[in-house]
Write a protein that binds this DNA or RNA. Sequence first.
DNA 1: AATGAATGAGTTTTCATTCAT
DNA 2: CATGAATGAAAACTCATTCAT
Lengths: 218, 218, 218, 218
Amino acid sequence: MTIAKKAADRPAAALASARRADLVRLAGELFAEKGFRATTVREIADAAGILSGSLYHHFDSKESIGDEILAGFLNDVLGGYRAAVAAESDPRATIERIVHSSATALTEHRAALTMLQNDWNHFSGQPRFAYLRAAMREIEQIWVTQLEAGKAAGLFRADLDAPLTYRLLRDMLWIPIHHRPGGDRGRGPDQVTEAFLRLLFDGITAAAPARKARRRTA
Amino acid sequence: MTIAKKAADRPAAALASARRADLVRLAGELFAEKGFRATTVREIADAAGILSGSLYHHFDSKESIGDEILAGFLNDVLGGYRAAVAAESDPRATIERIVHSSATALTEHRAALTMLQNDWNHFSGQPRFAYLRAAMREIEQIWVTQLEAGKAAGLFRADLDAPLTYRLLRDMLWIPIHHRPGGDRGRGPDQVTEAFLRLLFDGITAAAPARKARRRTA
Amino acid sequence: MTIAKKAADRPAAALASARRADLVRLAGELFAEKGFRATTVREIADAAGILSGSLYHHFDSKESIGDEILAGFLNDVLGGYRAAVAAESDPRATIERIVHSSATALTEHRAALTMLQNDWNHFSGQPRFAYLRAAMREIEQIWVTQLEAGKAAGLFRADLDAPLTYRLLRDMLWIPIHHRPGGDRGRGPDQVTEAFLRLLFDGITAAAPARKARRRTA
Amino acid sequence: MTIAKKAADRPAAALASARRADLVRLAGELFAEKGFRATTVREIADAAGILSGSLYHHFDSKESIGDEILAGFLNDVLGGYRAAVAAESDPRATIERIVHSSATALTEHRAALTMLQNDWNHFSGQPRFAYLRAAMREIEQIWVTQLEAGKAAGLFRADLDAPLTYRLLRDMLWIPIHHRPGGDRGRGPDQVTEAFLRLLFDGITAAAPARKARRRTA
DNA sequence: AATGAATGAGTTTTCATTCAT
DNA sequence: CATGAATGAAAACTCATTCAT
């Protein structure tokens, strides 16, 4: 049920190596900064202090480094989504769980996000990365399901267009980590996540204390 | 005060040329589909039915085509923002104006959005595209100003973190056009815009008719 | 019915160019000398007096140069075979026609032979070169058919194993031109072809005028 | 007078090692399938279940594996040729001996043939493999001598061009084993060899019924 | 305005080989 | 004997750009 590549095709040793993990992390940092395509294997090798050809001792292509990073990320994210759904709370609680777990996954996979944002076109077209589209479909389906359930339960607005709302939300979801480290003076991921949930549930409008209507008088 | 390149830089004929405009549009469509960097000048030339070298009769570089597209877009967008602010209504009305004008600009400049999303890193680093960062700063400043004003006027929640809210919102703003044409069965740009505003102002929670309070997540 | 690639996918100009034809001929000479894989694009470019990258203005890959050479050759060869069969003479005359036309094709496509001999494994595995296998099958089938017809007509030995005989013959067929130019002092292609036909029809044994019988191999 | 490398060059242990012999056999199988150059040391190592670097404990280069295989093969083949000549029968019997011994050698050295066919250019240029050219010269010389002797004895056609006939024959000689295992339903090496000799001596033409008869009655 | 040919700097990738452990 | 990591040289290919015609 997981997305992760089977280790079978290459010697297991290659996948386990500590050096290899180092290189993936290193490459990830560069991808996070400049995007996948814009990062050359030479740059990765330079950062690792080796020659570019030497990378191919550990990976059989640049793509496979990307694969490893993306698959790991989506595995984590989907894991969080599925766990949230499996907990079987009410839709609002489920969404809260989802958002919190996403924030965690994002924090631990900084590179994957940039890669998906910058190079989505590049990856999504290749058969090798078919799982990207599949994962996106599953994520959308979970959101839409929860939003509809919330409507049915009277928790969310009855006039909510669930698929459209998901679309509107989608990119916002990626934001918490998009903040450059140190770019958000004094606000940690938790605060950002809370602000997001607050915005999602309640919007920005102040609760109308004395007025009957929520809408303004003009 | 506008961003557009001075016409003086290049032969007036070139700028006036209908062929040139055609080529920019054509290139824009390709950029919208695949991103700026991922589109080769050969592809643009192929689409135009000429050889790649011939493009350099019209433009002195691929970058300058991108420049033209982005500058035109940001000019429109900033125009809308400034007009909204100049109208001097209350913050909520101003924000509505901003969102509506953004939706219009986005519809007319499909290519620019994809370029900014996919190739932001590429452009934002170059001095030539310094105006991109400047425009983004102006846009952020206008949003933050309006959000703060709304708080001061008691329209928006007092606990709103304006800069953070803007960040959360930002990518959502780009969405309306991101929908592939025909991808949103039956929903036109207007409906999408309305849904966005509704989400922004009120969130997804149903108005609690009989309940005491709606209250937050913690 | 021909093997030649449709010109449709690339601008017709590219296929027609005189320069392009020059380059194919040039590459062919190198392939003939050293084999396809053993020849680098740099060598081809050097021979043409340009940089290796410039070759890609004319071809989209080294493989496609090989494709052009091989397809042209097989087209000629198969043309000769089909014409020989269409002439509807007796099998011996048909085989003579086939051998003569093969000798001609070989003389005009020196490179193709070396490529097929040295790099058969390389090409025959790729889907792009599926026509190679198809052509070989057709050639074999024509030979076997003619050999069987000759047996039925009493022209060829009744104990002839047609498929096996073709196998034995096959490589011999390609030889006439394989002789390095100047390597066969005084013998032109015609003499070689005649010697081949004589060997094929009569073997090397002298006609036994007065002797009783000559033995067999046990 | 043998071609085999002097054992003195490398530690006796290495030559004696059973593991080493295994590796040569293994490499040979891969060479037979894909050719020498097209087979990477990594593939050989993979097949042996070790890492590519570890091969260099047994051989000092990939070339030296090829050397071992080719030298062994040519040693066997030349041995057969020389023995056939030393038997001092008539030319026809000598040729029969040669062909039979070649067939045996080929059966036992499948890899060597593919290597010579695919990578002749690669090897024949190197000083280290000078013995290849020498062996080929000796083989040709023996054939030509036997053919000429047969002509002088009135056994072979007086108009036979001996060097040219050898050239025509040459590739056919290698065939018997070239048949993929299982590719020749029901025909073993012996049958193939007989068919070859029959073709060589008598050609494919049926004995002319009304003439005295060149051939037997069947 | 456009062609056709080329440049040149860069890209990913391949692979035999070396060597400290 | 073998590993694991690396080298280094060369391979095929990409692509924005130039320029004489």
